[in-house]
Design a protein around this nucleic acid. Structure first.
Lengths: 127, 127, 127, 127
DNA sequence: GTGGTCTAGACCACC
DNA sequence: GTGGTCTAGACCACA
């Protein structure tokens, strides 16, 4: 797996790492049971501190995406563990609301938004 | 206009203020030329620091939503000023990408997302 | 509130802090809306690093016990947020099972365990 | 005897082994003088490292559950050796205190806890 | 070798 | 002032 981190972005590094791992799961580049690099390995690979990786891994563990296996290190959890649930959908709704509302204020219509989403989904699936 | 701030939320207060003003514009509760409360007035109304309101107004000014006029105070700009543009759409795309990708990883399909957006748009328009 | 930390214990410092705060909530020494000391303040008070306090606060936040209020700092959440739920009870069951089973192997009977629990509950409530 | 190890759990493997052997004693599946598999045999049986089994056996020996005999291998000790004693009860009390206190903070009452314990004891005895 | 914990010291965003 | 993030370097338990 290949992670690309933007060191000057205003989104925290550990968040970027989370996003990219989640993206890899969405694209089926990472499947249940797949091993992730060790905390120290990944840290030195992308040139950040091991605590930063640790924080990302722990956040993903908290969300059910990863589990820590005593033998294999960190592995991808089974799908059921991070399947959508009411709590998640509610949070998603709140975040989506902000984006959609501003896009409407700026004059984007339903089709424009729909095209965006379709495009994103196609990119994720089609890879 | 009525602003409701959630002091507990982890999104900054000034960001919440921005969102709610933008939402009011999307709902046509605020139209071109409408005056907004003064920094001091709004600050004491919702019980936050002057700087917080100032920061929100300045951010909205930077995005073209508001203009600050020494005479008339703060007023809503004309639509052209904050109309969607490539820069904005690119930023929106990036943010949307994060939400959509995670929702896919969690097993939500196109229809679920589409329903969310439709619901949000209906609420904003229909109000 | 008074926290007493055992620096040589094998249970992590941040875990001890969590336990004591939870205990204070159980004893009603801490109620909804009560403010906790700042991360830095508590850290210097009990002579540990601020990251250790931070980790404890974040763990309690994740469990619904605390929330971060932009004005007042860290405060105790409302009871509903950390009320018992099936997930928690299942975890509790697993932990309890270990304790009870060993106590049985060592010859303790129902009454002995029951007395322990009664005693603990009385101490917590009666204060 | 059948040991089932959860490689994913965050409780150490050697601790899990201890718990299961203690549980077997509580259930009278293992009685005084019964032989346990050799370190090597058990290690290869459940697919873990020799050191892990060794650590578990040594911990149980330290608690009086097992005795290691050069001739007969590892056997279950007599009941008196691991009978409850003040030191153990004190330790149990400390651990129980953590569980009970948190459950109270989360609103569980005496009956809920009591039912848990009764259920656990019934499962252990009745099996 | 792995992850978990702790320390010390730094910068930033928010209020 | 607050909490949030990152770095650097250290020790320990586990396997």
């Amino acid at each position: 797996m290949l992670l690309s981190i933007d060191m000057v972005s205003d989104t925290p590094i550990y968040t970027q790492i989370c996003h990219q791992i989640i993206r890899a799961i969405a694209m089926n580049h990472l499947c249940e049971g797949d091993e992730l690099p060790s905390v120290r390995g990944l840290a030195s690979d992308i040139g950040v501190n091991l605590h930063t990786i640790n924080k990302a891994y722990n956040a993903l563990k908290g969300d059910g995406f990863l589990i820590v296996n005593r033998r294999k290190g960190v592995v991808v959890n089974n799908k059921a563990a991070y399947a959508s649930n009411p709590t998640y959908e509610e949070a998603l709704m709140r975040q989506m609301e902000v984006l959609v509302t501003e896009s409407m204020a700026r004059g984007l219509d339903y089709n424009s938004l729909n095209n965006m989403i379709t495009k994103i989904m196609r990119e994720v699936k089609g890879d």
